[in-house]
Amino acid sequence: MAKIKGAIVVDIEKCKGCEVCVISCPTHVISMTKDVNGKGYHYAYMENPDSCTGCTNCAIVCPDGVISVYKIKVDA
């Protein structure tokens, strides 16, 4: 069965740590880092990268447009 795997890339310096992406992710992939960026915000990262399906929910709800989504189909 073909499986979809996804991944996100966050523009760290532009992320303002609003956490809107965290609750928008249906597979609970995203959470906030303990580190801060240059502005002093905790930024988003993939905590469970294996669960990401590349649905783009986080990216379209991100007010600052900092998330890029990549998706690939793998044959299992």
Binding site: G6, E13, K14, K16, G17, C18, E19, V20, Y41, G54, T56, A59, I60, V61, C62, P63, D64, G65, V66, I67, S68, V69, Y70, K71
Partner: peptide, 24 residues
């Protein structure tokens, strides 16, 4: 790549508060 910010938004960081709907 399936989604990234449109090129018509400049690279200037948005000045809105974190989480504001204006950015979207």
């Amino acid at each position: 790549l399936v989604y990234s910010k449109t090129k018509l938004l400049t690279d200037t960081p948005l000045s809105y508060c974190p989480g504001c709907g204006h950015g979207t």
